[in-house]
Amino acid sequence: MNVDGVNNGIVLDHIQAGKSMEIYRILRLDKLTCSVAVIQNAVSEKYGKKDIIKIDENIDINLDVLGYIDPNITVNRVIDGKLSKKEHLELPEVVTDIIKCKNPRCITSVEQEIVHKFRLADREKRIYRCIYCDAEHK
């Protein structure tokens, strides 16, 4: 399968197979007017299978969101057809308004305007806790 290369834009590589549409949705890539290619189940030497997203424009990307969804993603920035920057992600210390607290006793369950925020409590176990009620996000 052939998909055109990116001239000036971003390639999100090493996305866990099956996660690309979630990222497409969360990054709101449907709102872009440039070319966007989503490649699913591409062959990966490292992981066996992977997804790739190619965006033909250098847009601002919330790396915290990406890092939370899949810290193994590589962000390749391309300028004039050449790789100008390769960014490796990690789990962000804080995630804001990406996930919601599910604890029915949490203040966020009754006050809709509160920004849902989670802090990284255990990097190894990937545990995030609500900054208000400390409930673990599952």
């Binding site: 006793r105 949490c106 203040i107 009754v110 006050e111 509160i114 208000y132 009620c133 400390d134 409930a135």
Partner: peptide, 10 residues
């Protein structure tokens, strides 16, 4: 004092 957890943090 508030019945909801995290209200004082808010």
């Amino acid at each position: 004092r508030h019945p909801k957890e995290g209200a004082p943090t808010v």
